[in-house]
Write a protein that binds this DNA or RNA. Structure first.
Lengths: 136, 136
DNA sequence: GTCGAATTGGAACTAAAGTACCGATGCCAA
DNA sequence: TTGGCATCGGTACTTTAGTTCCAATTCGAC
């Protein structure tokens, strides 16, 4: 709340300053076409807004709509086990030891699971799996 | 917030300087007044950038820091937000962009969450958080 | 006002996770 | 018998995640 007040206070002061400057400029420049400020200024202001939005990092996943992969996700037996153990918070190594396979194989399975669920991280895979009610 | 004020102050001073410079170099632009574009334009461009940044910030809310009644685990407001976004499957970078903080800060929060929940991985933290009904 | 917790962020790491590509085996249905 | 799939495993690589230590503000409570 204080922040907001300070922000708007700062903006107000800035506007006041700009007005003051414009007055001073009027006086010092005479009739050299100062009205440009009121045309070009807002235009560039808007441009700045737009550019700021554009330059903002695309944030690929933050608001990405979770597109559910085609109704039927066919995880294989092992892939399902791996996903379940991922949801339990196990690391690849721990999953490997649980299933008596090597970590390399687990990585392969994890990659396949991520691909099939259209996820990019194991946490996302777990979330999607829960959404699809594949795992509790 | 001091930063904000400093920014506005800096912009104002910059505009003043630009005006001053333009005053000294007015003769070289001709008398059409068109040169204002090159002075006011960039200034408002920067102002637009700053304003866009400021107006983006406060609208992220929607997360209520839930105070835990018992359960020794007491996550702070930001830590709770980070944990929630972890459960959504976001990466540290995506969480950072969602909360308008840097990835470094997110890492700090994640480390604290893992420590407080006695977890060793974010997936485990999510599972524990769900077990403790901190997150759905 | 002072103090502790919270927030933010940086630097410099180490440790996992994930990708891409490969080969081998076994199984099953067409 | 052959093509496709699942399983297993490997190498080499890039990307995230996570740790540790540090420091500057900020905020609420006392």
């Amino acid at each position: 709340m204080k922040k907001t007040i300070l922000v708007f206070g700062g903006i107000s002061i800035a506007i006041l300053l700009l007005l003051q400057i414009s007055k001073w400029s009027m006086w010092s420049f005479g009739s050299s076409g100062f009205h440009w400020v009121f045309i070009v200024g807002p235009a560039f202001l808007v441009l700045g807004f737009v550019l700021a939005k554009l330059f903002r990092r695309p944030s690929i996943g933050a608001y990405r709509p979770v597109q559910l992969p085609k109704n039927e996700v066919n995880l294989s037996s092992q892939e399902f086990k791996v996903l379940s153990l991922m949801a339990e918070g196990l690391s690849n190594l721990e999953i490997a030891e649980s299933l008596y396979i090597t970590e390399s194989t687990v990585k392969t399975h994890v990659s396949n699971v991520l691909s099939k669920l259209n996820a990019r991280r194991r946490t996302e895979a777990v979330k999607i799996g829960r959404t699809l009610k594949i795992i509790p």
